[in-house]
Write a protein that binds this DNA or RNA. Structure first.
Lengths: 207, 207, 207, 207
DNA sequence: GTCTAATCGAGACGGTACGTCGGGTCTTTGA
DNA sequence: TCAAAGACCCGACGTACCGTCTCGATTAGAC
């Protein structure tokens, strides 16, 4: 995720000196999630995270370059990784709709939504972080979608000449637009169905 | 736009006292655009805007409740309003693609992109501002799209049973995803063509 | 005292902008004296002074370059200026002894001693501040002594060929040594008498 | 010197385990002197001393309770002990002047002066350390002076009824005042001569 | 032609958070 | 047990902005 800092436990060489404390790390991540849930992201200060985690501020700055990076890692561990991959069925269109519906449901969780919104905001203000977020969130989702697309091609349901990127971005865009724009229309099961229905004729392999 | 404070010149009754200075107002808006262009939005402080505009800080707070509202108004006047409506032709699909391509080109301008990114970021962190931004930006674009859709229906090119909202959000989402997610794929004329081509079978009226 | 910052109320031009608040200034000085009295100088943080004075930290940094400068001004106003000049009598030796005894008594006050010790400490660590402290404290005392010396010469009690600086430094040194060195011998009326008695033969005009 | 911790090599029983490294001890003391010479005492951190000495921080804290104690020991070994006792001559006044002049010259060394100033500063802020410093520095000097006084008495040059403490403090005060107060007058051979000359009539045994 | 009240530039004010530094302790590995 | 390394908790630092306030100086309409 955050490329500079390898995930805890994976550093190649046990360097000398006192090793990093796993309790401290987890306390910080937990505090971050808790506070982002409890108040506006803007109003979550590093000071408050440190105080909540009963940790020195330096222990945060030692391992994460910014609040955004910390929150990204916190939410990645807390929730974003918790969406298990979909098991493909015999109907790729159904899989597509199910995957969308499942993702929509996942994002309707208030805590998750709040965290993701914060990350999106941060990403707009910092191109470097935008890249990190792409790798950590968007890229993962795109891969999931791509798997369904290839499965649909293999099943013969989808056209062979589809541009995967365009399709993936249109489908995901449908979600992100409703999530980010402030429109009041929901991203629910019905929306998932409508989106797939709208795109189906453009995707479907001709008989 | 900023609901609390009606746009300059529209307040019903100017009670006695010194009237608002138009130069001051414009200097503030200009300074805001200039500074957002020159550095990162988060590094643009109200103090800096006031100093650049050679204006007292109070003169900013008197008329705009926050930096975000100021920047929204500044960019609305500076650029967002500058996109004239498209004149409909005999081919609604061509109109759709042209409108998209035109909007993409508009957003490829660095200054505009920077301003819009800032506003999107702010909108994620503040639900109230999200609503303002929807009215000021997204709603306007949706209306433009709707006009094309209705024209397409009138021409008999588009299906009558389309859900305008779903279609508008899918189309716009295609743009916003590429703009916001950090993916490296461009939003250019080719993308506009691809998006319309992908959706065409789902939109087109059946013979 | 602090040369950069003219004493409050003496700045030549009423510059534009909100004028400096006298209440704020006094609250800061009072808080400084109070806290230096209540705990060790080292443990008096700028944060604590600001909090005690119910004042923003910036309001301290705006007017004093360091804690030492603040404490110097605070104690100058609080106590160091409070020692009224001695009225010369017909016996310059008695005047000398009385002035010393009076100064000793003044410095036996715990609060004053604590403040002065802090300032001496700071002065050792910072040559610039040492100069400020010399002007504000040592120089003032030297002047008082010089006045007595000249008076003694005028009366014909003191030798004419005395080196004022040497004499002043020997006399003051007698005090500062006991005050600063950590010796347990007191600086009391008896010590004032002994010092004057020891020096008398070297000072006295020969018949 | 540092009462809690007996000088290296004097602890009665070295219990089992790895013994203290003399190289480590010396490296720390050397680093302390080097850094105090190179920058301001207040800017010399324990971290920096440890890094310069290529030593763990704990190895410092294990043996010295504070930076001040470390610097006191470092300078005691480095320089303060290096002033050999004066050999008494047949003229106690000349001895007195020579001893003063020699001490002045010693303190005119920049490195020594910097170290001593630091220690004096620390002593003002910490009564406990003040006592240590008195024992380590002031008391030693007082003893040297006392020896000259007694020699002068034995020779019949000095009055028998002198108060040793008063005299010692006046003489030493003459130095410390010029050293500590920030006055620009020097503590040189001439000053030594002037001080002794001023005091001579008060000291000299009456014929 | 005053009077009056809001506006203007300027900048001080009470706050909050920042990211860094240093102190003194603790926990590893290794000698 | 000591030593080097360095992570840990803690608290202070000095700075940057925030949004509010208080000045003197303007300004145009109301009287």
């Amino acid at each position: 995720m955050t490329e500079q800092i390898p995930p805890y436990g994976l550093r190649e060489k046990r360097s000398q000196g006192r090793p990093r404390s796993a309790e401290t790390r987890q306390a910080i991540l937990d505090a971050a999630v808790e506070l982002v849930g409890a108040r506006e992201y803007r109003d979550v200060s590093i000071d408050a995270i440190a105080a909540t985690a009963r940790v020195g501020k330096q222990s945060i700055y030692r391992w994460w370059p910014s609040k955004a990076d910390l929150v990204l890692e916190a939410f990645t561990e807390h929730s974003l990784r918790r969406m298990p991959p979909l098991v493909p069925s015999a109907d790729a269109f159904a899989d597509l709709e199910a995957d969308l519906a499942r993702f929509f449901a996942f994002m309707r969780n208030d805590l998750v939504a709040k965290g993701v919104r914060s990350l999106i905001a941060e990403a707009q203000l910092d191109p470097e972080f935008r890249a990190k977020l792409y790798d950590g969130v968007h890229h993962v989702r795109c891969e999931a979608l791509r798997r369904i697309l290839r499965h649909g091609c293999a099943l013969g349901q989808f056209r062979r000449d589809l541009d995967e990127d365009v399709l993936a971005h249109v489908i995901h865009g449908a979600f992100w637009y409703r999530f980010l724009s402030g429109t009041r229309q929901p991203y629910d099961d019905g929306y998932a169905r409508d989106v797939v229905a709208l795109l189906r004729p453009g995707i479907e392999a001709q008989p």
